[in-house]
Every structure is written in C-alpha cells, then in structure tokens.
Design a binder for these strands. Structure first.
Length: 378
DNA sequence: GACACGTGGCG
DNA sequence: TCGCCAAGTGT
C-alpha cells in the first residue's frame, strides 16, 4: 500500500463522513447498486448538503430501478425540481428503462456496459463499480482533481487534455490493491472537508507530508484557473395568462436548457432598449417595446394576447448567462389549447416541475397578492 | 476541444 | 452586487 493510501485510509476510518448512500442495502444485504448509482448522478457538480434531501425524496419515490423505469418524466423532473442540470434526471430515467429492457433489471457491473448508459461517464462508472461492487476503478471528480493537482503540484490548467490524462493515470496509480472502495470515498471526503477549494486545512491533512503543493506553499494557488469571460445578461418577458381560476403554462421541449420543465409562456427579447428596464435605473417601463413583446408571447401561445405590464421582474443567474424576466398579465380569447400548452388550476401549479426562475415568479405573485388582488387570484 | 448545462452559498 | 465555486456528461 502506498505512502498516500495508508495515512488516507487511517484518516478516513476516524474522520470519514457518514453518508446515507454508504449504508444502503437490498434485502438487508449491502450495498444497493441502484441507490449508489442514483447518488452518483445526484452528486454530479452538486455538493452533498444540497443533494441530501433530494436523495431521500428520490429513493422514496422511486425505490427500485423498476419503479423508476415505470415512471413518467414529469414525476422524475418534479422530484429533481430546483436541483439543476435536468439532463441528469432525463438520462437517469432513460438509463433505468434501458437497464430493465436490456440488462434484466440489474445495474450492469462492467465499465463498458455502464458507459453505454446515458448520464454515466468515466468517473461515475468508476465510482459505481468501485463503491457498489468493490471493483478497482479510479475516479476523477472535482475533489480528486483538486487533491492531485496540489499533491503533485501541477501548475497547468487541469482542463487541458494532456493534464486530464495525467490526472487519470495518477488517480489509477494511487488506488490500492485492496479496499479501493474505502480509498475512493476517503479521497472524496478529504477533498470535501480538508483539501477544500478555498483555505484548505493542511494542518489536519493526513497526506500533507507528501504534498508538493503544500511544501511549496502553493496550496492556496492551486489549481490554477484560466480567466473566465464575464457572463452576458439577457432580458426576458413572460405572461401570466389567466382564465378564471386557471393559468396557462407551457412545457419546454425535452432537450436543452431546462428541458421538459413547465413555465409561464414567454421568451427572450432581443431589442429591449436598455432604458426600458427599471432594474437598470429607468422608470420608463416596457411600454414602447410592446410590438416585439406581443410577437414573442403570441408565438408562444398561438393566438393574440392582450398584455398589461405588472411592473414586476425577477432576476436569475445561470452558469453561462444572467437574465431578468419582466412580468406581464395576459388575456386570450380562446381557452382551447393542446400540449405543450395547458390550462392549470392555480392550486395545481405545484404538481408541475418548474425551474427555479419560474418558482421565483410564482412566489413573487403570491407575495404581492395582498396588495395586488387583481394579479393572481382575481 | 469548446461549450452547454442549474443552483445556492460564500466572500 | 458580483464572480467564484461544487461528487461531470453530452454534443
């Protein structure tokens, strides 16, 4: 066993985290590969504290791969609502169906088979085999990358292909012959609790003695980050269109940004004069861009819409852009619709998966309800 | 190889 | 307010 694995495993025994997916069982026999798989997908690009409530909710809704495979996408997305990266939920459902159809309902236990499943890449496949089946496969997630970059004092951008390949080789080389599953969870715990992105606690680190980055005092500089372009800002409009107690909502196309989620009809305005945005210092309002506005909403709704500005807006930030959504009240003539449009009683909105941005809209409308009775409950 | 893909917390 | 950051994968 390497000089790296030995102290790490000793540390893990006393300081490792107690996480729910580490004590899963099937009929009393641990572990449950399905639960491990679900946890790995939930944890992609997402911290443990964020995942915990989702993990419990997801497994109680879909306790087995069969139950997931039989589910509808709206129910899976509803369970995923607010977590982000919704392609994970779509792919999880697709993969569950494929496991039932092609793998007899059992999570496959080879790397090549796992890699055929949507949403499972090299790192997640390695983690599943490693943790669920005690197979000796390396992983390379954010934690492992950061640790390796520091321990081996790699001063180049880890995103470069050659650097990534080197990190995979290093991850593989450190993996002990036995207890690879403990090692993998140990190194992730180390990254999450000691070798953190900012202010790593090197004083408490079991491998600081052999950390080249620490020896050179570079632990706070690594990994190096290439300068990021600043994210653009876009203005959106959306319409709260009511008919009695019902509201018109629309399901987004199944792929791409927020794919499959429901939202209030609207879209991006390209020719919004900067003066028209109250959020940027003016009280001019949205009136004079009315034409383009109606075009956007009417294209979404498929009929003419009478719009009134509500003087409300919500702001939201994605990884790659920021947006301000300007809210309007709308009314239409025809109440007949077909998917992806749907009239929904207001109290049934919560049955549908919405993005966080549109959840903010719902909250905002509920909050102004007292003073603006006209807007939401009539 | 570069970019798309969410969200909430933090300094 | 803003940029950075977190258990990656798909195109």
């Amino acid at each position: 066993m390497s000089r790296f694995a030995m102290p790490l495993l000793r540390w893990y025994k006393k300081a490792g985290r107690d996480l729910p997916w580490r004590k899963t069982t099937v009929g009393g026999v641990p572990p449950d590969p399905y639960a491990i798989w679900v946890s790995e997908i939930l944890l992609q690009q997402t911290q443990v504290s964020t995942v915990l409530p989702y993990y419990h909710r997801f497994l109680s809704n879909f306790p087995t791969v069969q139950s997931l495979a039989a589910a509808e996408i709206d129910d899976v997305l509803k369970c995923w609502q607010g977590l982000g990266y919704y392609a994970r939920a779509r792919n999880l459902l697709l993969a569950a169906r494929r496991i039932v159809d092609r793998f007899g309902g059992t999570v496959p236990l080879t790397l090549s088979e796992l890699l055929t499943l949507p949403g499972i890449g090299r790192s997640s496949a390695g983690a599943i085999l490693n943790i669920a089946f005690s197979q000796r496969h390396p992983i390379l997630d954010g934690n492992v990358k950061r640790i390796l970059v520091r321990v081996f004092c790699i001063t180049k951008d880890p995103k470069e292909r050659q650097v990534t390949e080197k990190l995979w080789r290093l991850s593989e080389s450190l993996l002990p012959k036995t207890r690879a599953d403990h090692f993998t969870q140990a190194i992730m715990d180390l990254g999450a609790t000691i070798c953190t992105p900012a202010a790593p606690k090197c004083d408490c680190c079991p491998v600081s003695r052999l950390c080249k980055g620490y020896q050179k005092g570079l632990q706070n500089k690594l990994p190096i980050r290439p300068v990021r372009k600043k994210t653009p800002h876009y203005d959106y409009v959306c319409a709260i269109i009511r008919n009695g107690e019902k509201v018109l909502i629309k399901k987004r196309q199944e792929t791409g940004l927020l794919g499959g989620l429901w939202e209030f009809p609207g879209g991006r305005v390209s020719n919004l004069c900067s003066d028209a945005s109250p959020s940027r210092g003016s009280k001019v309002g949205m009136g004079f861009i009315g034409k383009s506005l109606n075009e956007i909403i009417e294209k979404e709704v498929g009929q003419s819409v009478a719009l009134t500005p509500l003087g409300l807006e919500i702001k939201h930030a994605f990884t790659h852009f920021k947006m301000t959504i300007h809210l309007f009240a709308g009314s239409v003539r025809k109440s007949k619709t077909q998917l992806p449009l749907k009239w929904v009683p207001i109290d049934q909105l919560k049955e549908h998966p919405f993005s966080s941005a549109h959840q903010k809209i719902i909250l905002k409308l509920q909050n102004v309800r007292q003073s603006r009775r006209d807007l939401w409950c009539g």
